[in-house]
């Protein structure tokens, strides 16, 4: 794009302001995770806590072995799931983007329909557990509901349609290239930004998913980080909102500051992985320039 200086300054101001509005709450999150629990109750949330404390992290440290394990599960699932899901999504979306493909409309509808309708929780569970026996296996975290999502397919399809000019495909075809060659030699190199975008979305989905663990795992050895964090959080929540009574001591369980600490340790790895995807955004831009 032809850039203009004025426009760039304007962009800095607008995005900068938005950036600050995003950073500030995170700063509050970070600071309150380092605040003494009682101090929050007494003095409220603050960017400059009166009583600094590492108690929240110390509490998490007590179960550090479990947390490390859950980290490893999450990383494995995210990496494998992203690669696998990305391949299947792209392979599915590309044919749908080809206008001249016979039966394209039916296929399109077939995919789209799944966005709105599925059998619901119980039937899906029965299918996966009774026919595929995925309960308490690592597959449970990889496959159900998130491996290929119609939403991402639709997005990828549109990207293919807009960012790969029909003329390029036509030209390759006139040269007598087969469909496989066109895909491998022409489409894939052009599609790197698409991969980066989708890969980012898919990996966030995998990283943040806890429903599959909730549904298909009873063995806590396979818990992903989110499952573990979710479990910690919900146990506190349940304890503080039940009067079933008993000899549970609230003092044994974390509360406000730990939730903040939990949020922090859940976000950091994704943040660290982000530049990896960004590299390809940049490449996409460079490619576009070459093309012109």
């Amino acid at each position: 794009m032809i850039k203009s200086r004025k426009m760039e300054v304007f962009a800095y101001i607008v995005i900068g302001l938005i950036g600050i509005s995003i950073i500030l709450p995170f700063l509050l999150l970070l600071m309150s995770s380092f605040t003494d629990e009682i101090s929050i109750t007494r003095n409220g949330y603050s960017f400059f806590p009166k009583e600094f404390s590492l108690n929240a992290y110390a509490y998490l440290g007590k179960s550090s072995a479990t947390i490390v394990r859950a980290y490893l599960v999450s990383i494995f699932v995210t990496v494998v799931g992203t690669v696998w899901g990305l391949v299947m999504t792209v392979l599915c979306a590309y044919p749908l983007s080809r206008r001249e493909l016979p039966g394209r409309k039916v296929m399109n509808f077939y995919v789209f329909f799944t966005m709105l309708f599925n059998g619901g929780l119980v039937p899906t569970y029965l299918t996966y557990t009774q026919y595929f026996h995925i309960k308490n296996t690592i597959w449970a975290l990889l496959v159900p509901n998130i491996l290929v999502q119609a939403y991402n397919v639709m997005l990828a399809k549109t990207f293919f349609q807009t960012s790969i000019p029909v003329e390029v495909l036509e030209a390759a075809r006139v040269d007598g290239a087969r469909e496989t060659t066109i895909f491998g030699k022409v489409v894939l190199p052009l599609a790197k930004p698409i991969f980066a975008t989708l890969g980012l979305f898919i990996s966030v989905t995998y990283w943040n998913d806890w429903t599959n663990g909730l549904i298909y795992l009873t063995d806590s050895k396979l818990f992903s980080l989110q499952n573990l964090l979710n479990r910690m959080t919900s146990n506190i929540q349940f304890l503080s909102s039940t009067s079933l009574g008993g000899n549970v001591t609230a003092a044994d369980l974390p509360s406000q500051t730990v939730r903040m600490a939990i949020a922090i340790i859940g976000v950091v790895p994704m943040l660290a992985a982000y530049p990896f995807f960004q590299k390809y955004f940049v490449k996409g831009i460079a490619l576009g320039a070459v093309k012109g």
Binding site: C92, Y94, F113, T114, F117, G120, V122, P123, L126, E179
Partner: peptide, 30 residues
């Protein structure tokens, strides 16, 4: 025949959607 590779590309996800969404869809009667 020319487009066959494209159909094959679609197939894995097609099967996935079948298992993940269409197979349990009978459950809508619930």
């Amino acid at each position: 025949r020319r487009f066959l590779p494209l159909y094959i590309m679609f197939l894995p996800a097609g099967i996935y959607f079948f298992i993940n969404n269409y197979l349990p869809m009978g459950g809508l009667v619930i």
